[in-house]
C-alpha cells in the first residue's frame, strides 16, 4: 500500500510535518496498538507504527520514503557538482592513509565545508518540500537531486570522520 506510513499515523502524505504532532499521534496510537495492551495479534500493527514514526520524524528519511512512494529511486552516482571537491578529498585521504599527515588540515577544512553544505541542503529541502506539498509535482525532481547530494556528502563525512578520529586519537 503506497504511503502506508502516513496512513498508520493518520496523516496526508506531506513532506513538511510537525514533529511534535507526529509524536503525539504516535503515542496515542501506541496505546491502541501495543501488544502489551492490545495482545500479541497487534504486533504487526505496532511494528508498522514504529517503522512509520521512525521514518517520518527524520526529515531526510521522510523525503526518501516520499520519493520512493512516488516511484522515484535515488541514484548512486557522484553528483556532478561535487566531482572536483570529491577528487581532491580522495587525494587527501589517500595521502593520510599512506602515512602523510600533512594533508590533515586540508581534510579538516573539507570536513567543515561539507558539514556546511549539508546544512544548506537541509534548508533547501524544506523550501522545495513546501512547493511539493502545495502541488508542484516538478519540484519532486529537485528533492531527488538534493537528497542525492546529501546522501553522498554524509557518506563522505563518515569516511573523513573515521580518518580524523584515527589521527586525532593517536
Amino acid at each position: 500500500m503506497p504511503f502506508e506510513f502516513y496512513e498508520a499515523l493518520g496523516l496526508e502524505p506531506k513532506l513538511a510535518l510537525d514533529v511534535e504532532d507526529l509524536r503525539r499521534r504516535f503515542y496515542q496510537r501506541s496505546r491502541e496498538s501495543h501488544p502489551d495492551l492490545a495482545g500479541s495479534e497487534a504486533e504487526d500493527r505496532m511494528a508498522l507504527l514504529n517503522d512509520a514514526f521512525r521514518t517520518l520524524r527524520d526529515p531526510v528519511l521522510r523525503a526518501q520514503y516520499f520519493l520512493q512512494q512516488n516511484g522515484i529511486e535515488l541514484s548512486k552516482d557522484v553528483p556532478p557538482e561535487l566531482l572536483e571537491e570529491v577528487f581532491e578529498l580522495n587525494m587527501a585521504l589517500e595521502e593520510i592513509r599512506g602515512g602523510d599527515e600533512s594533508a590533515l588540515p586540508q581534510l579538516e577544512g573539507a570536513r567543515n565545508r561539507f558539514a556546511g553544505m549539508q546544512k544548506e541542503i537541509d534548508l533547501e529541502l524544506e523550501a522545495i518540500g513546501a512547493r511539493v506539498d502545495s502541488g508542484d509535482k516538478t519540484a519532486l525532481e529537485q528533492v531527488r537531486s538534493a537528497l542525492n547530494r546529501r546522501k553522498y556528502i554524509s557518506n563522505l563525512l563518515r569516511d573523513v570522520d573515521k580518518e580524523l578520529n584515527v589521527h586525532l586519537s593517536n
Binding site: D44, M46, L48, N50, D51
Partner: peptide, 17 residues
C-alpha cells in the same frame, strides 16, 4: 563477500520489522 546488509538499525523501537 562476507558483508553485512543492515535490515533493522539499533535503537529502533520494538516490535520492528
Amino acid at each position: 563477500g562476507g558483508l553485512v546488509s543492515k535490515l533493522i538499525h539499533r535503537n529502533s523501537t520494538i516490535p520492528a520489522s
